[in-house]
């Protein structure tokens, strides 16, 4: 059993890639798609986190550069105070995974709900 952070999402990505929509891809193509899906998941996690920040928390990161180590530290610190967040990640990522499996496309992160082809 391996519960490292990477593996939690990698497992979900592998599940997506095992869907028929990706059956025709060769190993190299799958690796490319894997990174795209993984990035999508992490982006989703980050966006959910941002949406769930309090005004005060948001204020603290608003003006930080994303590359600033403080940004990461604060994000991690804030999420530790959100007991419901993991469940939200769970629900949202699994829905995204279902979408990817069914359509072979990434769900939109933007407002227009257009799909992002992989």
């Amino acid at each position: 059993m391996n519960l490292q952070i990477d593996d939690i999402l990698n497992k979900l990505v592998d599940e997506c890639l095992s869907a028929p929509a990706f059956a025709t891809l060769d190993a190299q193509q799958k690796e490319v798609q894997k990174q795209k899906i993984l990035n999508h998941f992490y982006t989703r996690i980050l966006f959910i986190t941002i949406d769930n920040l309090t005004d005060e928390q948001y204020g603290q990161i608003q003006d930080l550069k994303p590359e600033d180590p403080q940004f990461e530290q604060k994000i991690e610190s804030f999420t530790q105070e959100m007991p419901q967040l993991l469940d939200l990640f769970d629900q949202t990522l699994k829905k995204d995974a279902d979408y990817i499996k069914n359509t072979g496309q990434l769900p939109s992160l933007e407002e227009d709900q257009s799909q992002n082809p992989l």
């Binding site: 990035n39 990461e72 999420t79 530790q80 993991l86 469940d87």
Partner: peptide, 25 residues
């Protein structure tokens, strides 16, 4: 974030969120 972050940074921040969320849970 989408524009500025490279893949590695994006994952780094996402992982930070995830780690924190696990602790939070």
């Amino acid at each position: 974030l989408l524009v500025r972050l490279k893949s590695g940074d994006l994952q780094r921040l996402g992982k930070a969120s995830l780690r924190g969320a696990i602790v939070g849970a």
